[in-house]
């Protein structure tokens, strides 16, 4: 008995010590960075933007691979079954990891995902085509008030950040609009430019992608986006809406805390790099910094927001 206890104690000590030692050497080889979506999406693009900076700062490769399916659910359901040595990491997205498990059994729970860092978000924005009669957000809300239901928005997906933003905006602005879900931002933008819809609930990134073919009316950020200095935030216009699609990096649950914190620190360092920030902002992204130890509070606040809007929008019962 005594022997067993002693062995277990020694084992625990060695394990802790070796974990610390491992963390000191970390990263000693290339990291496998799994994106739970297909290539070409924004999650892929932001991972690709991180890639060269990771190599430059920490001397190891960040090898991007894909595990798409079920809007990310396939990857997240598998995450905790992967080896927790810090060399397998996976992208995580909001609102996906909050809404999917709330809607149905998808094989993982929100609080089972060990997030190391939330590093950026793409803020929601209302975009109209360049020849649209709506010059300001006030024009748009006036039209919606005069013609209830006739203001048609395109957006990417249902239960997505775009859709939830539309639901919350309708409530805050006291209007009723129609939301049409398209498969992805590209299709939604096409519908906007083709005049199939009046406006799009898109992201700041759609604004940069479409250039002078489109006009951004307002962005759902705390402060104005540096890339669009002339575009007001919803807050400035009296609508308390700050939202978007957040992206972070998670590790399998079995990963030692030391390594998770080290990774969190490392991603933070990339986020702090001026050149990286410039590339991200040029692409229309916006930075956030939520390290591992602040994840729980952040996720709680966001969950509440998203779930409330989802219930409002009729996606959650």
């Amino acid at each position: 008995m005594n022997f067993i206890r002693r062995t277990m104690f020694t084992a625990a000590v060695t394990l802790a010590a070796s974990a610390a030692a491992v963390a000191a050497d970390y990263p000693g080889k290339a990291l496998d960075y799994i994106i739970p979506f297909g290539p070409g999406g924004e999650s892929d693009i932001t991972a690709r933007l991180q890639q060269p900076f990771f190599k430059e700062k920490f001397g190891q490769d960040l090898v991007v691979s894909y595990k798409p399916g079920g809007g990310g659910a396939v990857g997240w359901a598998e995450l905790n079954r992967l080896t927790g040595d810090g060399y397998t990491i996976m992208g995580v997205n909001l609102p996906h990891i909050v809404l999917q498990p709330a809607q149905k059994d998808v094989g993982y729970k929100t609080d089972e995902l060990a997030v190391a860092y939330w590093f950026h978000y793409t803020p929601d924005a209302i975009v109209v085509s360049a020849d649209s009669p709506f010059k300001t957000l006030a024009d748009l809300t006036k039209f919606a008030k005069d013609n209830p239901g006739k203001l048609v928005f395109s957006g990417s997906g249902k239960g997505s950040a775009n859709h939830l933003a539309q639901v919350r905006f309708d409530k805050l602005a006291g209007i009723k609009s129609t939301y049409v879900a398209f498969k992805g931002t590209g299709a939604s933008n096409t519908a906007l430019l083709g005049g199939q819809v009046n406006a799009a609930w898109g992201y700041t990134t759609s604004g940069t992608a479409l250039g002078d073919k489109a006009r951004v009316l307002a962005v759902a950020m705390e402060k104005r986006h540096p890339k669009f200095p002339d575009v007001p935030t919803f807050k400035e216009l009296g609508i308390d809406l700050v939202s978007g699609a957040y992206r972070g990096i998670a590790v399998p649950k079995s990963t030692p805390d030391e390594i998770r914190n080290k990774l969190s620190e490392m991603i933070g360092k990339i986020n702090a790099d001026a050149e990286f920030q410039k590339k991200m902002i040029d692409g229309g992204f916006a930075m956030v910094d939520v390290p591992a130890d602040k994840n729980a509070d952040f996720l709680k606040a966001k969950s509440q927001e998203f779930i409330e809007a989802a219930k409002e929008g009729g996606i959650l019962k």
Partner: peptide, 19 residues
């Protein structure tokens, strides 16, 4: 011309150009 990928491989190429 539009920044809208015509086919799935175009989406990947678009992303690479952004980087």
């Amino acid at each position: 011309v539009l920044g809208i990928p015509g086919t799935p491989p175009d989406a990947v190429i678009l992303g690479a150009l952004l980087v």
